[in-house]
Design a protein around this nucleic acid. Structure first.
Length: 437
DNA sequence: GCGATCAGCT
DNA sequence: CACAGCTGATCGC
């Protein structure tokens, strides 16, 4: 009988061990407070936050992976080794490097691989070190959210500087920043530090901040600060206009939304597109003052999208260049995307296959995709998601549905991904095993 | 009433 | 379209 060995960010029954890369809810669909299938492995920070998201979670099933350390797991059917590496995506996020009978698999989860970020530099060091014990990485499950050269956005510290410039140039305004339940803590801390100001957050978010170890930066007292971080869903142009009836207020959306709009045409020429044109001129640089000064008060500029509303390209996913650097470092034999949704979706081997170790399968795959490209452009986000190569069998998801109807060629898609939306994760490796514990 | 699911919206 | 994720309606228990 066939059973799964391990699952990452997937919660269907049948695996011997489960791994959670981070606590964003599109990675926890199917996970509940009543979890009882098998041990769940995650980072220390995720373990700290998880009981608040899942109140009656059986903590005896929780196992902590310390980033950088190699853990040996004895599962009912086999022994495997796993190393967690800081993914720099949000607080507690990790990548996972697995070694076992099946070979070596690196699962990035969502990740941001910034050349300039100190944390990423540390993560790079840890990854390099971990890779020294590995002859070759057979498969990388890749956060391919922006694995297309049409996506370009700056490092987060540059985007953060932009945010601070916007705030500084509105000294008499209240400032509302949209964030989600987890993530972008670094941005808020940078703002707080640079402007010497506390940041208001809503009560639950304050508890999260405290759990993360930030005790003096955030407050729930509105009278202590003019900068408030609010749930992204809770504010819009309308609420901002309402607020402005009372006192001058600007809104800032730090968003990973693609910084391209209409002109995602065939070529690389992006000028004229909504949010990209400016960025295409001189590469990203930290000195943004000239631009900012001229942008502010200039309605229709890339970052001022409304009289009171600004957007800043602050992304917790890697841009194309960063993914490229990552692949160069790891040099896997194969790549598999863990995100399959956008109309700009391109199977990662198409762009990054050239950076992989060449073997026959790789060559075949590349030929196959080139052929496909020639026939017709891969839009529609339709059939992609290679499966069942070698002895690694994968369940993968996160599709917009439409083109995908049930099962095909060994891929089993969750009902979520078929019927609705976001679902990431993979069941790595089908395995013969006696029983599950 | 509660949890799971899903449409809608941002 | 895309990020990530909430609200609220509905359904089954």
């Amino acid at each position: 009988m066939e059973k799964g060995l391990i699952s990452v960010d997937r919660w269907a029954e049948g695996s011997q061990a489960y791994f959670l890369t981070h606590l964003h809810s599109d990675h926890t669909h199917g996970l509940t407070s009543g979890w009882s299938h098998a041990p769940l492995f995650c980072s220390p920070l995720t373990a700290k936050l998880l009981p608040f998201k899942f109140p009656s979670f059986d903590l005896s099933l929780l196992r902590i992976l310390h980033p950088g350390a190699s853990h040996t797991l004895t599962l009912p059917s086999t022994v495997l080794h796993v190393t967690a590496i800081d993914a720099c995506h949000c607080s507690g996020s990790i990548m996972l490097l697995f070694r076992g009978d099946f070979g070596c698999v690196l699962y990035t989860g969502d990740f941001r691989w910034e050349a300039t970020c100190e944390r990423a530099a540390n993560a790079r060091h840890v990854l390099r070190h971990a890779l020294q014990n590995v002859p070759v990485v057979d498969v990388v499950y890749l956060d391919n959210t922006y694995s297309n050269p049409i996506y370009d956005f700056p490092p987060r510290h540059v985007a953060a500087q932009k945010v601070m410039d916007i705030i500084s140039s509105h000294p008499d305004h209240d400032v509302i920043i949209g964030i989600n339940t987890l993530g972008k803590e670094d941005l808020l801390i940078e703002i707080s530090r640079a402007l010497q100001i506390k940041i208001w957050v809503w009560p639950e978010r304050l508890r999260t901040m405290h759990l993360l170890g930030y005790h003096d930066i955030f407050t729930t007292n509105t009278s202590l600060t003019r900068v408030r971080a609010v749930p992204q869903y809770s504010f819009s142009i309308e609420t901002l206009e309402a607020l402005n009836a009372m006192r001058p207020t600007i809104g800032i959306m730090p968003s990973g939304l693609p910084w391209i709009k209409k002109s995602l045409q065939k070529n690389e020429f992006l000028s004229g597109s909504f949010l990209t044109s400016r960025y295409k001129r001189g590469k990203w640089s930290a000195n943004s003052e000239a631009q900012t000064d001229e942008q502010i008060g200039n309605i229709g500029s890339p970052e001022k999208i409304h009289e009171y509303m600004y957007t800043v390209p602050y992304s917790d996913h890697s841009n194309y260049e960063e993914i490229e650097e990552f692949i160069k470092l790891v040099q896997p034999i194969r790549l598999k995307g863990i995100v399959a949704s956008s109309s700009c979706y391109i199977e990662p081997m198409y762009y990054f296959g050239r950076l992989c170790r060449v073997d026959q399968q790789t060559q075949l795959l590349r030929e196959g995709h080139k052929r496909k490209e020639n026939c017709k452009r891969e839009r529609e986000g339709s059939v992609r998601s290679k499966t069942s190569l070698g002895d690694v069998n994968v369940e993968t998801g996160r599709d917009r549905g439409k083109a995908l109807k049930g099962r095909f060629s060994g891929v089993r898609l969750s009902r979520f991904s078929i019927l609705r939306r976001t679902h990431r994760g993979a069941k790595i490796h089908e395995y013969n095993s006696s029983d599950q514990e």
